[in-house]
Amino acid sequence: MTVLQGVLLVLVALGGTAVVLVRDPLRQSIVAGVFGLLLGLLFFAFQAPDVALSQIVVGSLALPSMIVLTLAKLARLQRPDE
């Protein structure tokens, strides 16, 4: 294993833990974005550019926009209760 892979693996493990431990969904989705970047870099270090590309596409665009739109709608649905 190269040093690069080792460093990125440790960071991915830490990043995944961080994503789980942040409780507020909006801030969690931001941490999840950084985690997605780390995953993309790890896949590239594993010599898998295709998978890295998919991860970039999903992690930095598809997931964040879905999370944000869901949170916006949830906030709107929840407002009457307050």
Binding site: L26, I30, G40, F44, L53, V57, S60, S65, A72
Partner: peptide, 23 residues
């Protein structure tokens, strides 16, 4: 890959910003 990431992270950030500015 770098090109894609540069472009897509901008679009993704826009999604966040449009939400955060309202909430």
């Amino acid at each position: 890959l770098a090109l894609m990431l540069a472009v897509l992270s901008f679009v993704g950030a826009l999604a966040f910003v449009r939400y955060v500015e309202r909430e």
